[in-house]
């Protein structure tokens, strides 16, 4: 990975974390997407709005926001856990929900009373194919699930992605004793 890419990733994540923890939940309107009617149709552009609408279909609360770099992001909540969906390689023009991106990362942050040992996180990463956990500099634990969306996926693919995120998040919260 190039250093520039790594740097940009970290900056984006810091902004997402700040936004995800903000108390106010300002719900932005997102358009209903015709592509959602046939969930198996291959779509060449996956937009932030598609991801947000699919999350709502699965019972999440979700809205499209803008991150510090001017790219779309989705703030979601399920089972009391607030998380961000960060988008990469996005189109730079158009309304936020309409911008297409090539891959996404589901990100949840956990502030624990006691710093978690790295071996606990390593055990999680070793035992689970989906999701990766790491310790941030501020002591918080981050759980991420990156998913590639480039070159031909469908809404049904997003459905499956959300099922994986549900399983990953629930399993991880149990692993670290999060309540």
């Amino acid at each position: 990975m190039e250093e520039m890419t790594r740097y940009a990733m970290n900056e984006t994540r810091r902004r997402i974390a700040a936004a995800a923890m903000a108390a106010a939940a300002v719900l932005a309107a997102t358009p209903v997407l015709a592509a959602a009617e046939d969930r198996t149709a291959i779509v060449s552009r996956v937009t932030a709005g598609m991801v947000s609408e699919t999350m709502k279909d699965h019972g999440y609360t979700a809205y499209v926001d803008k991150d510090g770099e001017g790219d779309p992001m989705v703030i979601g909540t399920v089972d009391g856990t607030r998380f961000g969906v960060i988008f990469f390689d996005c189109e730079k023009t158009g309304a936020m929900p309409d911008r297409a991106c090539t891959d996404v990362e589901f990100t949840a942050l956990y502030t624990l009373k006691k710093k978690l040992p790295l071996k606990t996180l390593n055990a999680w990463n070793a035992g689970n194919a989906f999701g990766k956990a790491y310790l941030r500099d501020d002591g918080d634990v981050a759980l991420e699930m990156p998913i590639n969306l480039a070159d031909g996926v469908s809404i049904s693919y997003l459905d499956s992605t959300l099922e994986w995120w549900d399983a990953v998040r629930q399993g991880f919260e149990k692993h670290i004793g999060w309540k």
Partner: peptide, 29 residues
């Protein structure tokens, strides 16, 4: 793990480092 984008790393019980990347294969693509 903090910097990689789609893959993740871990250390096996044997002590060997490993790299892993998960792919959703559910649904149509």
């Amino acid at each position: 793990n903090r910097t990689y984008r789609l893959a993740k790393a871990y250390v096996r019980d044997s002590g060997d480092p490993a790299l892993s990347m998960a792919l959703n294969t559910g649904g149509t693509f």
